[in-house]
Amino acid sequence: MRVGAQDVTWIRGGQTVLDSVTAEMPEGAVTGLIGPNGSGKTSLLLLLAGLHRPAHGRVLLGEREVATLPARERARLVALLEQQAATSLPLTARQVVELGRIPYRGRWPGAADPAASVVDEAMAAAHVQELAERGWNTLSGGERQRVQLARSLAQQPSVLLLDEPTNHLDLGHQLDLLRTVRRLGVTTVAALHDLDLAAAYCDRLVVLDEGRVAASGPVEEVLDSGLVARVYGVTAEVERHRSAGRVTVVWHR
């Protein structure tokens, strides 16, 4: 399912955090959302998730405006992996993943979820089966991130929104997670800090700078040394690496 932001402006606490943002995230593609701290990446994800209404403009899921969708239906279409999910409750990893089934549960307790196996599949896909009975507060940052990914997958979403999904992960798990996401074939929008990872795993990029779209399009068209200098203020060489076969970013400063 494609996702689109059309001329979206969002004002939060008197501050314009997104300013006339228009971006297209095509069906089945992995779109990277890059930009410096405070450029509006998380804000855009919250709007794409339908959690807030923009002051102006529209967010489209497929052909429908996300703000008009009933909350439960929206939660079956879009899953959000937040930065630094935290709870003080003594939940097990499996119970956290089961939260992802809430949009499919009946209002009254008792009726069993007809697709309970989805939880197992989601945990397998995120490689967290062995953590099932561990308490959430005993998990490492990386394990928590993977458990939350499994929770997102348990929602069986058509659109996956990831806010810094590779935070807290070691290099191996970063690559694993992004590879897992790619293999799903689900329309994905991921806010990423690491330009190299973004270049390696995304089909397209949307570059945000101070709430505005600085550039957007296929990775190879968007990412160049001029953009990195302009948006991040960093001197970098951006070129296609011969043996890796992909665009790499080597910074200097």
Binding site: A49, L51, E73, A75, T87, P103
Partner: peptide, 9 residues
């Protein structure tokens, strides 16, 4: 938290 609750419908 509330964003998580919202995104779960």
């Amino acid at each position: 938290g509330e964003s998580a609750a919202g995104s779960l419908g």
